[in-house]
């Protein structure tokens, strides 16, 4: 299948997914379930990665800024802006594309192969609405929260690393954090995270939902969806930067 058939089928999937639920209560339950699956279960990995990213960014920025005329607070400014603008949203979502994406693709792929999706359809349920929409909505709800968490922990990690390794004291770092702070950057980071949230939930859902063949195909769908989501994240990253900055 070529690019345009995929695109057409993807758009059709999104369109058909938006209908009135057969039963609000069950859809709500599914949405909450997905928030836990996508959100709570990813907190650990997001925390670890962002703390270390913050720490590494601090140490490496200090290494690059050797001139004594530059005040040390600049390190904090650079770390803050790097994390908010790029590392927290983009890197977190690339990682989530792997963690969440493969889970969504394999869950749906398994349901497809074992005819569970057919079983739902036979009952008279809109399977796209029941299986895909809650996942995308849940991602749109929790991924921005994860990105904010990643930003906070990343900056904190940078502060701690700076203090421990004697690069700059906590107070200096804190001072630097407040220097020239641009609130628009936070808005930009959130715009990115909503875009990525949509990508990392809808792409794996698409590949998982349309799996054909045997269980080998489920693994392939997972891999393919991770690759495609990562590429789309990077493309969107560039496009958003070009548009909004």
């Amino acid at each position: 299948m070529n690019f345009f058939t995929h695109l057409g089928r993807f758009l059709l999937m999104i369109k058909q997914m938006i209908t009135k639920p057969e039963n609000w209560k069950l859809y709500w339950k599914e949405l909450m379930h997905q928030c836990v699956e996508i959100g709570i279960r990813s907190v650990g990995i997001v925390a670890v990665i962002s703390i270390f990213l913050g720490a590494v960014t601090t140490v490496q920025t200090a290494y690059q800024l050797v001139s004594p005329v530059i005040p040390r607070t600049v390190i904090a400014v650079i770390v803050r802006d790097n994390i908010i603008l790029e590392l927290a949203p983009t890197l977190t979502c690339v990682v989530l594309a792997g963690v969440v994406g493969s889970r969504i693709a394999s869950e749906l792929g398994n349901m497809r192969i074992s005819e569970q999706i057919d079983a739902l359809k036979i009952m008279g349920i809109n399977t796209k609405a029941y299986l895909i929409m809650p996942k995308i909505l849940a991602a749109l709800i929790v991924v921005p929260c994860l990105v904010i968490l990643a930003a906070v922990l990343g900056i904190w990690g940078g502060q701690v690393a700076g203090g421990i390794s004697g690069i700059l004291p906590f107070e200096t770092f804190y001072q630097g954090l407040l220097e020239d702070f641009i609130p628009y950057n936070v808005f930009f980071a959130l715009t990115k995270s909503y875009t990525y949230a949509f990508i990392i939930s809808s792409i794996p859902a698409y590949y998982g939902y349309y799996v054909e063949g045997g269980s080998l195909e489920i693994g392939r769908a997972g891999t393919k969806s991770v690759i495609v989501s990562c590429i789309l994240i990077l493309l969107a990253d560039y496009a958003l930067a070009a548009l909004l900055l």
Binding site: N23, E115, Q116, D118, M123, G124
Partner: peptide
């Protein structure tokens, strides 16, 4: 379709649900 029941070759039970929840699912939904 709400008047149709189907048994699939591999049974197609929802594997995240217990036996009871599987059977209750159509009742919950409709």
């Amino acid at each position: 379709r709400q008047k149709i029941g189907m048994l699939f070759q591999g049974s197609a039970l929802f594997d995240s649900m217990t036996v009871e929840q599987n059977v209750m699912f159509p009742l919950d939904m409709f």
